[in-house]
Amino acid sequence: MPSGFSTAAIHAGYEPDSLYGPINTPIYASTTFAQDDLAVTRNGYEYTRVGNPTITALEDTVAALEGSDFAVAFSSGMAAIDSVLRVLLKPGDHIIIGNDAYGGTYRLIQQVFTLWGVSNSVVDITDVAAVEAAVQDNTKAIWVETPTNPLLAIADIRAIADIKGEARLVVDNTFASPYLQKPLELGADLVVHSTTKYIGGHSDVIGGVVCARGQELEEQLRFFFGWVGAIPSPFDAFLTARGLKTLGVRMDRHCDNAEAVARFLEGHETVARVCYPGLESHPNHEVAAKQMTRFGGMVSVIFRTEEQATTFCRTTKLFCLAESLGGVESLIEHPATMTHLAVEGSALAVPRELVRISVGIEDEVDLIADLEHALAQL
């Protein structure tokens, strides 16, 4: 097994075959596979809904990078989240979720799983004592994002792992990526990614993946992969794997640029607060420095008024007004009216003065100039 991260991102999970020797994993665009005899498959593949060599190669690479026994790829991040919840929860169970979680995750838990008889508690996931106090006899899962979306709070994974009891600790590692953070090494039971974001990295493919250890969990997750059928297409798996090869070099540039953007914005008179774990002013900076190698490419800014926030979003040119994140291009959005509109009025409602920035890999000088021009319009 390659020891370096970028070496593993390029080489783990696939070797050129002996027939033609393709350097890249072929796109096995076949729904079905020839069998050598009745119920005797060739290398374990029979039907793409339950397994495909292109998808397997992606899964094996992600597992190597996360340090997991296995990875299961899904057609989207939400499909991955839904499958994990179905594996871990049944009617009568309880789940703890952070008060700054992704709105789509909370919406799924609150509007679907609540009807199924699953209760939930919303807590400040950065407060370990509050998390421990929320654990009940029927708590089966603690759902953690770190950094959180969109306020970039940091949860202490190891500390929560120490107090979780019989519950499974699930970490959504999308914002950090396996390049910056390894939740399983810190005591998490499962790791979830929207591969649409940093792993794919080019805003051209939707996907998700779940990583964990243990045969029982793998069997349960693969049940939902195959029999429910929320699978990625071979082409989507190919695009995601192609993006994954450059994750290390991209994340370094994302981090460089995000650190520069955070420092620039922190000193501006219209800015009330910059949320970036790499700043010493961040309340969870020390925890982030302990469990992350760097601080990521996401920066959130709280302006003094909502009008300043919305004007800022409408005024940038290089930072494109769009949802999603983690691509090579810089994006900007207003969570209260865009990605987090569904949680308005709930315990997860976000400040209307908040702007979320996904800092891309463009030249730093151009990014700062664009922000400077937008700030001048406020």
Rank of each mutant, 00 (worst) to 15 (best):
M1Q: 07
P2V: 01
F5W: 00
T7H: 06
A8S: 07
I10H: 06
A12N: 07
Y20K: 10
G21Q: 03
I23A: 14
N24D: 12
T25I: 09
T32H: 09
A34G: 14
D36Q: 15
D37F: 14
A39W: 08
R42Q: 11
R42C: 09
V50R: 08
G51M: 05
T54E: 10
A57E: 11
L58V: 08
E59K: 05
A63H: 06
L65E: 04
S68N: 00
S76I: 04
S83E: 05
H94V: 02
I96N: 13
I96V: 15
I97P: 06
I97N: 13
A101G: 02
Y102K: 11
L108R: 10
L108P: 00
L108G: 03
T114Y: 08
L115R: 15
S121F: 08
A129S: 12
A133Y: 05
N138V: 11
V144F: 11
E145N: 08
P147F: 10
T148R: 02
P150F: 11
L151G: 03
I154G: 10
D156P: 07
D156T: 10
I160T: 06
I160P: 10
G165L: 05
A167K: 00
L169A: 07
V170S: 05
V170P: 04
N173Y: 00
A176H: 01
L180R: 08
L180N: 08
Q181T: 06
P183T: 00
L186Y: 03
S194I: 00
G201A: 07
S203V: 09
V205Y: 03
V205H: 05
G207F: 00
G207V: 00
G208V: 01
C211R: 00
A212I: 00
L221G: 06
F225Q: 04
G226R: 02
W227E: 09
W227Y: 14
W227G: 01
W227T: 08
W227H: 11
I231L: 07
A237I: 10
F238I: 02
L239Q: 13
L239C: 13
G243S: 08
K245R: 13
M251R: 00
R253E: 15
D256T: 14
D256S: 13
N257C: 11
A258N: 15
E259I: 04
E259Y: 12
V261Q: 06
F264L: 10
G267T: 13
A272I: 02
V274R: 04
V274F: 09
E280V: 06
P283E: 15
N284R: 13
H285R: 09
A289H: 15
K290E: 15
M292R: 04
M292S: 14
M292V: 08
M292L: 13
F295K: 04
G296P: 03
G297M: 03
G297R: 01
S300I: 08
E306I: 01
E307S: 11
E307Y: 07
T311M: 11
F312Q: 10
T316R: 03
K317H: 14
E323C: 09
E329D: 15
L331T: 12
E333A: 13
M338C: 03
V343S: 10
G345V: 04
S346Y: 12
A349E: 15
R356T: 07
S358D: 09
V365M: 11
D366Y: 13
D370C: 01
A374G: 05
Q377G: 02
L378D: 02
